[in-house]
Simulated scan of single mutants.
Amino acid sequence: MFDRAQFYSDERWDAFMQEAEGKETPFILIDLDMVRENYIRLRELFPYAHIYYAVKANPAVEILSLLRDLGSSFDIASRWELDRLLSLGVSPERLSYGNTIKKARDIAYFYERGVRLFATDSKMDLHNIATQAPGSKVYVRILVEGTQSADWPLSRKFGCHPDMAYDLIVEARQLGLIPYGISFHVGSQQRDIGQWDEAIAKTNYLFRSLEEEEGIVLQMINMGGGFPAHYTIPTHELSVYAKEITRYLHEDFGETLPEIILEPGRSMVGDAGIIVSEVVLVARKNNTALQRWVFTDVGKFNGLIETMDEAIKYPVVTSSTVTGKEGEVILAGPTCDSMDIMYEKSRYQLPLNLIAGDKLYWLSTGAYTSSYASVEFNGFPPIKTYFFDSKKK
């Protein structure tokens, strides 16, 4: 079992536990003060960058309102995210339509509401933007190799080869659009900082070749997300990422950098959340089995989909009353689906005296949990989320 003190101070843990008291499991607790701290820290470490929070990580109104007031911009993927932000008073100038897979009528919807910054990675999408959002700024997303070193890779489906990106930028100008920049994403929960070095080098090549050969001066680099939350596999601290990435940028672009956009999601809200669950059943599959099956009231379909293939390994701890010798467990969810197994190969350890009714706390679960949860699989309702500010008690 993991030592929760590695992830949360006594003060912060006590605040979580106080908020958890009396609530029916499963549910998510979000510490808004930690979100605030994460935003301020990122702004301090990248003072030259514009922060566009990736709304998909956690689209809760409470989080969006907090980040709005702190001055954040937003990366959005659908008209529903757009409507939510506009309803909160966020101006369209602070929004980027970062999804490269979009319907022509959705592009028109964004354009009619004032959005003028669009991502693309294909000729058909580029033509749709030119038709439905004339004169807009476009940035082309490139494929990045080596994203398998990320816990949640984002390769293949998104982006295009740099040669195609070059052609799309040239065609964007011909179509009356503003060729604005290049974007990339090195993969979510990226632990290899060197992946940014390679991506920035490819971007620099495109910047230089487009200016020299086509007279097109690009103005922006969108570096996406990738910064980590704290799970079971150690990562560098954000300050190390910032130092190295800043060095890479200056090595390729000199002292005067283009406009830089960051799209943090996981690193902004991941550590700020804890899922509180209850043990439903502890069982063995035969009389001599060494592993126990621990079934909980939270699973892949109501918050923990990123445990698919055991990709994201959340720290899991018990309450202080459940202690003693530990043994290996398989952690599984409550639904009638055999895929609803979170950890079987990762050799999680939990106390041998664990019984039904005991609490399990899934740490660093503020990102991609509530937003991924199913609506009504097996009749289970979407997981509830509660918000608090530990510094405003």
Rank of each mutant, 00 (worst) to 15 (best):
E306I: 08
V294F: 01
W293P: 05
E310A: 15
V316C: 05
W293A: 11
G324F: 01
N302T: 06
D309H: 09
V322R: 02
V316D: 03
A311H: 06
E306W: 00
T318R: 10
G324N: 13
E310Q: 15
G303M: 01
I305D: 08
G303V: 01
E310S: 15
G327V: 13
E326K: 10
T296V: 07
D309F: 11
E310M: 14
S320I: 14
D297C: 05
F301C: 13
K300Q: 14
S320C: 12
T318S: 08
G327F: 10
K300R: 12
K300D: 08
G327A: 14
G299D: 04
L331G: 11
A332F: 03
G327H: 15
V298K: 10
G303F: 02
L304G: 13
F295H: 10
T318F: 07
T296Y: 00
L304V: 15
S320H: 12
A311W: 02
I312Q: 02
T307Q: 07
I305M: 13
D297R: 07
T307P: 09
I330C: 08
K325G: 07
V329Q: 05
L304Y: 00
T296G: 03
L304H: 02
E310H: 15
S319A: 11
T296R: 00
A332G: 08
D297G: 03
S319R: 11
G303I: 00
L331D: 02
G303C: 14
I305R: 12
K300F: 00
E326P: 05
V316G: 00
S320P: 07
G299K: 10
G299S: 04
D309R: 08
V298H: 00
E310R: 14
Y314K: 08
K325Q: 10
E310N: 15
P315T: 13
I330Y: 00
A311D: 09
Y314N: 11
T321W: 09
V329P: 05
G327Y: 07
I330K: 04
T296E: 05
D309P: 03
K300Y: 06
T296K: 01
V329I: 11
T307L: 03
K313C: 12
T321N: 07
Y314S: 09
S320K: 15
P315E: 07
V322G: 03
E328H: 04
T307G: 04
G324K: 01
I312Y: 01
A332V: 13
G303A: 06
G303T: 01
M308Y: 13
V317Y: 03
G324Q: 11
I305Q: 10
D297T: 04
K300S: 10
E306K: 00
T307Y: 00
E328I: 12
A332E: 06
F301K: 13
